[in-house]
């Protein structure tokens, strides 16, 4: 039997807006993936630690506070340091267009803003995940 895609959904930093994270977690679970949700206030170290322990294929971060340029990039750096570039890294939130290209260059594989159809995230993961 094909192994289920394992996804870690995490909320980095101090931001408490968890509506998006919870909806995405549920949508991915309903699409047949194994979802681990960290809850709030995660540091980059905590996120990577959980990702290793849970052996996930995908990390999804949600952030609406505007601190994505620091907190998402912290995670990309740790992923590189730990040789975990095979983990698909996606993020969502209030992210201006000019930041999206910088984030992608830094190693964020996909960025999803307001108004995203949850199915688009499912398809993106299925098309890009390395199992």
């Amino acid at each position: 039997m094909e192994r289920k895609i394992r996804v870690l959904i995490a909320k980095p930093g101090l931001d408490g807006h968890d509506r998006g994270a919870k909806i995405v977690a549920r949508a991915l679970r309903n699409a047949g993936m194994e979802v681990i949700y960290t809850g709030l206030h995660q540091t980059a170290d905590m996120i990577i630690e959980t990702a290793i322990q849970e052996d996930v294929d995908v990390i999804g971060l949600s952030l609406l506070s505007g601190a994505h340029m620091t907190l998402f990039i912290d995670v990309t750096k740790l992923l590189k340091k730990k040789n975990m570039q095979d983990v698909l890294f996606i993020g969502g939130g209030i992210i201006p267009k000019e930041d999206v290209s910088v984030l992608k260059k830094a190693g964020v594989d996909g960025v999803f803003g307001p108004g995203t159809h949850t199915e688009d995230i499912v398809v993106f993961i299925k098309n890009n995940v390395k199992l």
């Binding site: 930093g13 101090l14 540091t43 609406l64 506070s65 601190a67």
Partner: peptide, 22 residues
Amino acid sequence: DYPTLYGYDTDHPLSRGEFGKC
């Protein structure tokens, strides 16, 4: 901003990246 909402000063480690953001 978030550090203020959580009762942290701007130079607290957990304030990283959040100064003046929201």
